[in-house]
């Protein structure tokens, strides 16, 4: 798609806008519709757009898979440990009142953190999912081109083995 100038140019404008919108949704979940999950999805769709328009490899470069996995786990852990903080501070798991001296402010902080954890996880997950699914195609295509013959042989071997 990067050979099409119209799409390319428009995408370049759209991508930052989408990401900003995602973050807006993320942090205004308290006031309007939206929250971590939606924001994560929208944020990821910016990446999807990027990868679709500029190619998967370029898309991958932006955010290496290793960090992506860290993002996923980090989001979950952020959520979890926000909850554990309540436990450490003497109340039950996921009690946000104690996060700050004022219960309402504590709740606010807790919700913010928790939503951010969700957002981080979801964004990273969706990006990962997309790259994994789309990457499968590239993977196959490459394989089928380079060593189709060789693999046919080994595949029949495997098949035999399976039959045994």
């Amino acid at each position: 798609m990067q050979d099409d100038i119209v799409i390319r140019v428009v995408a370049k404008v759209m991508i930052p806008a989408v990401m900003l919108f995602a973050l807006y949704v993320q942090f205004h979940g308290d006031y309007g519709p939206g929250g971590g999950f939606q924001a994560g999805v929208i944020f990821a769709s910016a990446f999807v757009l990027n990868a679709v328009v500029f190619g998967l490899n370029k898309g991958r470069h932006v955010w290496p898979a290793r960090y992506n996995l860290m993002g996923i786990c980090g989001g979950v852990l952020l959520y979890g440990f926000t909850g554990v903080a309540g436990m450490v501070l003497g109340k039950n798991f996921l009690n946000f009142n104690v996060l700050s001296s004022d219960p309402v402010a504590g709740q606010h902080l807790g919700i913010l953190l928790v939503e951010f954890g969700v957002g981080l996880t979801v964004a990273a997950v969706m990006v990962m999912l997309f790259f994994t699914f789309a990457g499968r195609t590239a993977h196959l295509r490459l394989l089928s081109k380079s060593d189709a013959h060789e693999r046919k042989v080994s595949a029949s071997k495997t098949a035999k083995k399976v039959k045994k």
Binding site: L56, A134, H139
Partner: peptide
């Protein structure tokens, strides 16, 4: 036919 890379532009896969 793919959302991934174009056939020609991808050299390294996963």
């Amino acid at each position: 036919g793919t959302l991934g890379d174009h056939p020609h532009s991808s050299k390294k896969d996963k």
